[in-house]
Amino acid sequence: MYQDPKRVRSNKCTVYLDEYEAAIIQAHANYNGISRAEMMRQLMLQQARTALGIDPASLNTTVPVSAG
């Protein structure tokens, strides 16, 4: 079903936020039109790439781009 079974999101990570933090995340997600989970995932991975010095442009995609 999936091209890469390792890309299936089955690992859960719980984060507890206070009302102010949750409101910021919710507002940011609403502004971008995405779910809170997606917003948190994007923010977390962006921070991890920054901390590790990984350039997102250098990463290979797992799904081949088809001409057409």
Rank of each mutant, 00 (worst) to 15 (best):
E21M: 14
Y2V: 14
A23E: 13
A67R: 05
D4M: 10
Q46W: 08
T50N: 09
V15Y: 01
K12D: 00
I54N: 00
Q26A: 13
K6E: 14
D4S: 12
Q3I: 15
V8A: 03
L45M: 12
D18C: 10
Y16I: 15
Q47T: 02
V63M: 13
G68I: 08
Q42R: 15
M44Y: 07
G33H: 07
L45P: 01
D18W: 08
L59I: 14
Q47R: 06
N60S: 14
M39F: 02
G68Q: 12
A57F: 12
C13K: 08
D4G: 08
D55Y: 06
M40N: 01
I54C: 03
M40Y: 02
P64K: 13
N11W: 04
I54M: 03
N32K: 11
I25W: 00
A27V: 00
Q46S: 13
Q46V: 07
Y2P: 11
A37M: 05
T14H: 04
G68F: 09
A48W: 04
I25R: 04
R36A: 02
A67M: 06
K12A: 01
C13H: 06
R49Y: 05
G53S: 02
Q42G: 05
N60G: 09
K6A: 14
Q47M: 02
A27R: 03
Q26R: 13
K6P: 03
P64W: 06
E38H: 03
R49P: 03
P64G: 07
I34C: 08
S35H: 01
H28V: 00
Q26L: 10
S66E: 15
A37L: 05
S35Q: 02
A27Y: 03
V63F: 10
A37C: 07
K12L: 04
I34W: 04
A48E: 00
P64R: 11
G33D: 04
V8N: 02
L52T: 01
M40E: 00
L43I: 08
T61R: 14
R9P: 01
M40A: 12
M1I: 12
A57G: 13
L17A: 13
N11K: 11
K6V: 09
M44T: 15
M1Q: 10
S58I: 06
M39W: 00
A57D: 14
G53N: 02
C13G: 02
I34V: 14
P5N: 08
Y31T: 09
A23Y: 09
R41Y: 00
D55L: 05
M39C: 08
T14R: 05
S10Y: 07
